[in-house]
Design a protein around this nucleic acid. Structure first.
Lengths: 218, 218
DNA sequence: TCTGATTATAAACGATTGTTTAAAACATAG
DNA sequence: CTATGTTTTAAACAATCGTTTATAATCAGA
């Protein structure tokens, strides 16, 4: 039983430190000392630092993809052949993202990790995430395609990533932005309130008019 | 004259490596060996690695803020007391962002650096950028305020950062996205074309309907 | 051409990194 | 209790990090 305890203590500490300072800036000694665990325990239980990083992600993404798949199952059986409206799809994704880390009050950590997965070099991480969790995103993208039949494929592809960028960038850099916001007009904003603000912006962005044709551009 | 040569060779190499792998993952030995410069040259000319990082940013942001200020000057004198339309402001910013690195074909590097500035911990960088270049952003935000008088202050603040997130996130992670895009539908997309696609999305996001009131939310 | 300051260089510094080793502690089944 | 397999531990590993030092090379001004 002490084994499980050590493994989860390492994961709990690692995810916080990774989220705060990034992967390269967090040493195994930082993690093990704060987790009150022997240094060698990381290599013993996980094999390497890279594997630890992937394990941290898997602990969030495994339940996320599972819940997201069943949520999409429900939507598909509810709507049958009819396309699921875009707002419903976005709402579904947002709800799932909020649910997963809610149990440990770690939404902020989860968001920050997603941001790091995009921006930190860490080629192994991108490959790991793509290989293990790419399919659920493909499925979501296909549903979005049916919800926005007028959008050219390329346009929809990019707008989906614009949307992802907005959300992940905002929620991942939340602490820094919150500092500025509080200094500017003294309002403390919660993650859920931010998501409330994000929704109309994202929907409007997805439904924006098509850009002027490439040839007509200056 | 050899001095200037060494300094710029260090900066040229450092910005590329930083953009590719991040700050912590790029060692001074990586930089100096690739730049064919002695290791100690960095500490001699810049003082420290932190100072080198800041110098890399200053080389982009100094001309950027200067050009942006004069471009905003022209807009203000053109419109006088009337508010500058939002589209014009965004167009002005986009044009300035494109102009600065154009001389060295390093738009990709510039964008990637901006993304890193947001996401990498590097507290000293955030403070440096805020202290040196915060004023031009404040000025821009004030012009946006006059262009969108119907938007509550808090809402506009967050939407501006949503927009920044979309653009920086997209252009900073461009290489990864481009790989996916090419694999999905074989189209190679240029930065300028991406900006063309971004514009209507950003404008629509800024002009999106207000979210349901906080109290009415679930 | 000599002088004095600036720049380049090679070598070493101590600190920290991820990982491995070998022995100790522990748990559990016979 | 004993024996076996698992987990923990302290110590050391080689590699790399940013920085410093002392010396050599280069330059500009008189």
């Amino acid at each position: 039983m002490a084994q499980t305890d050590t493994v989860t203590r390492i994961l709990d500490t690692a995810e916080v430190l990774f989220a705060e300072r990034g992967f390269a800036e967090t040493s195994l000694r930082n993690i093990t000392s704060k987790a009150k665990v022997n240094l060698a325990a990381v290599n013993y239980h996980f094999g390497s630092k890279k594997a630890l990083i992937q394990a941290v992600f898997a602990r969030y993404l495994d339940p996320f993809t599972e819940r997201f798949h069943t949520a999409l199952d429900e939507l598909e059986s509810e709507y049958g052949e009819r396309p699921v409206p875009l707002e419903v799809l976005l709402e579904c994704m947002a709800r799932t993202v909020l649910e997963v880390p809610a149990e440990r009050n770690s939404l902020k950590v989860f968001m920050r990790l997603l941001g790091l997965a995009y921006t930190q070099a860490q080629g192994h991480l991108r490959r790991f995430i793509q290989a293990h969790y790419g399919s659920v995103f493909t499925r979501f993208a296909e549903l979005v395609r049916r919800a926005t039949p007028d959008l050219p494929d390329a346009e929809r592809f990019w707008r989906l990533h614009f949307m992802l960028g907005t959300v992940i960038f905002t929620l991942s850099g939340l602490d820094a932005l919150r500092d500025i916001a509080e200094k500017d007009y003294g309002e403390h904003v919660s993650v859920r309130e931010l998501i409330r603000r994000l929704r109309p912006v994202v929907v409007a962005g997805m439904n924006a008019p098509l850009p002027e044709s490439a040839r007509a551009a200056s």
